[in-house]
Each structure stands twice: as C-alpha cells, then as structure tokens.
Write a protein that binds this DNA or RNA. Sequence first.
DNA 1: CAATCCCCGACTGGTTTAGTCGTATTTTAG
DNA 2: CTAAAATACGACTAAACCAGTCGGGGATTG
Lengths: 156, 156
Amino acid sequence: MLRLSKRADYALMAMKHLAVNGPLRAASTREISQAYDIPVELLAKVLQRLARAGLLTSQQGIHGGYQLSRPAPQISVAEVIEAIDGPLTMTACSEVDESCDQYSRCNVRDPLWRIKKRIVSALSESSVADLAADSAVSSPVMFHSPGREATVGTGQ
Amino acid sequence: MLRLSKRADYALMAMKHLAVNGPLRAASTREISQAYDIPVELLAKVLQRLARAGLLTSQQGIHGGYQLSRPAPQISVAEVIEAIDGPLTMTACSEVDESCDQYSRCNVRDPLWRIKKRIVSALSESSVADLAADSAVSSPVMFHSPGREATVGTGQ
DNA sequence: CAATCCCCGACTGGTTTAGTCGTATTTTAG
DNA sequence: CTAAAATACGACTAAACCAGTCGGGGATTG
Ligand code: SF4
Ligand code: SF4
C-alpha cells in the first residue's frame, strides 16, 4: 500500500524535533518519547539506528542525548527512511534481488523502476529542514508568526 | 518500506497485458496467469476487483474474459493500485483516519502529506499505456491462437 | 446439457512489524 | 568512589498483514 513503517515515522518526528529544538542542545530519548508519546524503548532503537547510520551523534552520560550530525537542510527524508527501513524499493524485486517468481517473465519491472526513481528523487529533495519549516508546533521557544495559518493549538 | 503489494504488481502486469494484447480481444484469467506464471486463483481475485472498480469489463461464458473498459492512456497506475490496495496512503493516518496514537502531537503529519501528494501525482501521471510503451517487445504470448483447439496433451 | 469462464467469500500458513524486557556500558554529579 | 542518568544491544512476544488456497456458485455458448 505504499506505506512507510511506524519506525520511519517516529524517526522523522525525532529528526524534526532535533532540528527545531536547537541543534546545539542534545535531546535525550526520554525527552522526545514524552513529547510525542512514543514508547521509549522503541524510540531508543530508532535513534540508535539513526546514530549508526551517521545521521545523529550520540553523547552518553548524565547530560547526554542525540544531536543532528549535519545541518538540517543537508539531511534528506530519503536518508532517514532508508536508515530505518533499509533501501526503499517499490517492488519485491530490485537491481540486486531477483528472487521474485515472475522476474523472468515480468513485463512491468522496468517501467515500475522508473516510477520508483521519481519517488526517490521526490524524497531526496525534501530535507528535514523542510519538515521543520512547515509549522513549528510543539517547540518550547518559537517566534509568533502573524496570524496566518496558525495550526489549532494542540494544547500541550 | 514504501512497497506496493504483490497483488497490485499482478494487477499492473495484467493491465499491461490487456493493453498490449489488443484491446479488441478478451483475455481470460487462465491465459494471463499462464503467460506470467501467476497463481490463477489469486489473479482471478485481482481481476475481479479491477472489474468491480470499473477498470475492466468482464464477459462470462465460453469465450469470455476481460477487456480494458477505457483506452489505456486514460487509465493511470494510481487508479490500478488504489483499486487493489485501497486508497494509497504513506502514513497510518489520513484525512479520514486519525486513529494514530500520536495524531494530536504529531509534528510531521502535514509535511508528510504534502510529500504524499507529490507521489500520488507521479503515479497519476503514468498511464498503463506508458507501461506498455516501455518495451512492447516483452509480450510472451502467441498471436496466432483464435479459437484453435490447441490442447496440448496434458493427459486430462 | 456440459464445458468454460467469471463471481464471491472464507480459510490457512508464513512473514513482518509494533512493542517489550533484560542487561551491559559510558559519563558525570555529589 | 558510587549512584544516577543516559545510550547500546539483542532476544523475545503478540498482533497484523499478506500471498496463496479451497469450495460453492452462476452465466454463456455450442
Ligand atoms: S519482477 Fe515484476 S512481478 Fe516480480 S517484483 Fe519485480 S515488478 Fe513485481
Ligand atoms: S499522525 Fe503523525 S505519527 Fe501518526 S501516522 Fe500520521 S504522520 Fe505518522
């Protein structure tokens, strides 16, 4: 159904949180999990994978946490998703996996791969900064924007 | 992982088959299933759904089968996928489904929906004619089979 | 009337995924 | 030095999903 996993979803939320919440301060797993009501152990695993993929830097210890390892505009959502869910493929087959039963007779492989490329580029062109720019709700400090399109308060 | 289901995959293969294999002749489920080595009962269900969605017309009886209900260029792959897998959503939430636990606090919903729109439009701009145009060479069916009783001796 | 084809829903087994648990390691406050 | 706070890692479970199967119908043609 062309759906991305909940893990990836959480990853993007965390990335946006880290982008909005000052790239200077480190945010702990607990802080993020409480902010968005995400099971803490699950989020922990997600953040660890992001760190291992080089998108985040981790700092252990009492005042530790995670920070973006690069400026937000230089991190694409495609990278984030791939770090969590592996290479994003639209079909069961791929350039490196021909294990599909219909591979030899399939007549839509190539056209479908072309469509996949368009999707990937769409995801590559969006950065987490774009996510953050949209509507910076839930940030403790945010400047008041003149009344246009104020998202209805989430009363947090 | 942003992957479409096998069913949708089969549906696209069948649609291309019907587009290439003359929009005049009706093709039976058996014919298509044999051409691409797809389990016949599974393909049957897929074709039925496509018919119910109005993308195919069915003809019962001894020389029946399926035909495209519209010219191939006017059928988008988005339609085909949605007919099989339901409305294509990239996240667990949607305009009509707020059942996600994080819905109220989520900070990536809107930006993600915007990306989804780009993907949907990419799928809507591709027609099954485009699939067929790609490499029209790959139709592994014989053209010379009108009504011939070419039953191979399968010793029934 | 019988062969061929579409129609429909219920079922099953395997895979994937969301979420949990337990334990170890690193850092810093006191 | 020690305890608290934090990341790191892997094994585990329950539920959801999905590919594929079965069986009972009904329509069309010759
Ligand atoms: S080979 Fe064809 S049928 Fe198999 S996964 Fe790729 S596109 Fe789908
Ligand atoms: S509300 Fe947010 S977290 Fe929940 S499915 Fe939608 S985008 Fe994902």
